[in-house]
């Protein structure tokens, strides 16, 4: 079957239409495989070659990849959930109830969105500590580590703003507590809280603001920084391996020093 598939797919790749869409060309050569990465606007963020050692599960535990996966799931399920959701109080709560009991697969999509969000927060933290203990933040990758810290903050803000949207008790009081933390900022705390909530109370205005942040501003920020994060992996010399560093650095690493 796979040969049949390959034959038809090979024929398809030779057609004028396919070749007008994908610039990678046809055939199976190394050049073609490189071009498949280089000539694609999204994939060209990635390196065309990767050290064989780095695709080993133990090298990275695939934590960054899995974080990207959760982000993808969250974008897809999030867009679907938006179709049945009005960001107004108390309609938002009724919509959430409808998603659970009326909309086909609504409960499933909401579950998937919620659990993926939890998984993403966990994976982002795991990725950060893993990168730290591998020493993969060292020059020249220091700025990519900073981008990673920004992405951690964006992830936490995404999950925080998403928390208010069901407009249930948990949402309301978590945001009440959170917005009062903002008002503890010295001098301009009350102003910050006022701008954040769009009023003095956690109310319909706050719900709308959090909705816009959660569905537009923060996902766009996340995409922006994810793109830089990936591109910097390529530009900074691929995924970090200790042995890809020059000997001079390696000899100072205590673990490698003869005892």
């Amino acid at each position: 079957m796979s040969t049949t598939f390959n034959r038809y797919f090979g024929e398809l790749r030779k057609t004028r239409i396919w070749r007008s869409v994908f610039r990678g060309g046809t055939g199976q050569s190394t050049l073609r495989n490189s071009m498949a990465i280089q000539q694609n606007v999204f994939l060209h963020l990635l390196p065309t070659k990767v050290r064989t050692r780095m695709i080993d599960f133990n090298a990275t535990w695939y934590l960054g990849t899995l974080t990207l996966g959760t982000f993808g799931i969250l974008v897809i399920t999030g867009i679907l959930l938006m179709l049945y959701y009005h960001p107004s109080a108390p309609q938002a709560y009724a919509d959430t109830k409808d998603l659970q009991f009326v909309v086909s697969s609504g409960q499933f999509l909401r579950n998937l969105h919620r659990w993926s969000a939890h998984a993403m927060v966990f994976l982002v933290f795991a990725h950060m500590f893993r990168v730290f203990y591998r020493g993969a933040y060292r020059p020249p990758r220091e700025f990519n580590w900073v981008i990673g810290v920004i992405l951690l903050l964006v992830t936490l803000l995404l999950s925080y703003t998403g928390y208010l949207l069901p407009w249930d008790q948990l949402a309301f009081w978590a945001i009440t507590v959170g917005s009062n933390i903002a008002s503890a900022v010295p001098i301009m705390g009350d102003k910050v809280r006022f701008l954040m909530l769009g009023g003095h109370f956690v109310n319909a205005n706050a719900l709308l603001r959090f909705y816009v942040l959660h569905c537009m501003i923060l996902p766009l920020a996340a995409l922006f920084f994810i793109a830089i994060h990936f591109w910097r992996i390529r530009k900074d010399g691929g995924l970090y391996t200790r042995h890809s560093e020059p000997d001079a650095v390696m000899t100072t690493a205590p673990a490698e020093r003869p005892l």
Partner: peptide, 10 residues
Amino acid sequence: EPKLQSFPEV
């Protein structure tokens, strides 16, 4: 150091 093509292996 041995390397792999990102596409398709990675």
